[in-house]
Simulated assay, not measured.
Amino acid sequence: MPTYRLFSLIFLAISSWLTATAQTSELPLHLFSYDKTAPLAFTDSLIGTQQGVHIHKVSYASPVKGRVSGLLFIPSVKGPFAGILLQHGAPGTAMNQTPRGVYLARHGAVVLATNAPFAERGGDPIQFTPADSVEQVTYMINLQRAVDLLISRPDVDPNRLGYVGRSHGGAMGALFAGIERRLKTYILVVADGGLIAHFSSEKGELSDQVPLTCEQRKRWIAAMQPIEPIRYIHRAAPASLFMQSARQDEAVSTFAAEQLQKAAPANKVIKWYDAGHRLNTQSYIDQLAWFHDQLGTTAPGPDDQKGPDFPDAAAPKKNP
């Protein structure tokens, strides 16, 4: 049998198995287990104050490897506060989230923004090798540890925990919602179903943006499919979901956004905005209102109408 024919049969067999597995509740949740008793080894350094919010550079030990760095935003008034995880897109870093972290923290939340594993190592965020799968699992474990960190703080109410992530951070939130059971609510901003969904057409074919041979594509899909976020989001309940999408999104297709929305459980609110991938000011006000309803933070007021205090930005890049 010719080699190309053998590869084709193997690929079809793997695809059939993955499709069947994706339609069941048998998910490899064991991949995301970690030692909850390991010390956090937390470090903390105050680096500034903005609009009554103290900004700290922080790090903690990863249960997998090395350390996780990020920023912690703490209101200057007395708590206890809600606790919110704030996750960046790809490419991106926790530092990029400073305007959003301040914007949220001013309303009575301790906000923790951590660096994804690709931000810690530098270079291209997506490698299109099985290493992407390893990093995604590491990311989920590191985020669970971030929840441990928030809960360990005496100024955080463990019953008022939430998550907000945009683009790649939104997709990772869909996966995290299927793993982590301690959060009350998630805001998924311009999210799709994961890396495979992001780089696939409506027919399920990988885009030409993926610079791989047939064999390399097979290996990458086999590594990523078991942990594709769209397979996990149905487990988000009883946590609530607020899903924000853009009608003119240049990075996430309407089809991909809708597929994730359809896979989500009933306890969700979906809102579409007449905007591009960066969304608009109203989307940030809506996030404040959502956390007010779900976590008891303060409601948005007149000072919030202009949105986070972002610096002038260049045209957005078409990355997840």
Rank of each mutant, 00 (worst) to 15 (best):
E26P: 01
T138N: 02
V190H: 03
R166N: 09
I196L: 15
N96D: 14
S8I: 09
E250W: 06
Q127Y: 11
H168I: 06
S25H: 13
E205C: 09
V102S: 02
R247N: 12
L72Y: 08
S69P: 06
I151H: 03
L206R: 10
T114Y: 05
A222F: 10
F42N: 03
Q87T: 11
K271F: 03
I47T: 15
F176H: 11
L183A: 11
G276L: 05
T3G: 10
S16E: 13
G276Y: 04
G162Q: 03
I230F: 00
V64E: 10
W290T: 00
I187F: 01
A13N: 12
E135L: 14
W17N: 08
S133C: 07
D249V: 10
S201E: 14
A315Q: 15
L295N: 09
V134N: 06
Y273D: 08
G296S: 13
V252G: 01
E180C: 03
E202Y: 09
H292P: 07
K78P: 09
L6H: 14
G101K: 04
V156H: 02
I141Q: 08
R247D: 10
K36I: 08
D249Q: 06
F11Q: 15
R67G: 09
A256M: 05
I285K: 04
D124M: 14
T24D: 08
D132E: 10
Q209I: 10
I270L: 13
A20D: 13
F255E: 14
K271D: 07
A256L: 04
L188Y: 02
F291P: 04
T185C: 12
F118K: 04
I187K: 00
F32R: 02
D303I: 06
L188H: 05
L72K: 11
R247A: 13
Y284D: 06
R235T: 01
A256C: 04
G89I: 02
T37H: 12
A116C: 14
I227Q: 01
L241I: 12
L188S: 05
Y284I: 00
L72S: 09
Y273S: 09
P130S: 08
A191P: 11
A146N: 04
A116Y: 15
A237F: 11
A246F: 04
I230G: 01
P80K: 07
G70S: 09
S207Y: 07
R181G: 00
T24E: 04
A174Y: 00
N142S: 12
L212D: 13
K57W: 15
K36P: 00
A94M: 11
L9Y: 15
A90M: 07
Q50K: 12
A257P: 05
L71H: 12
Y139A: 12
G79F: 06
F118Y: 15
S76H: 13
Y186D: 04
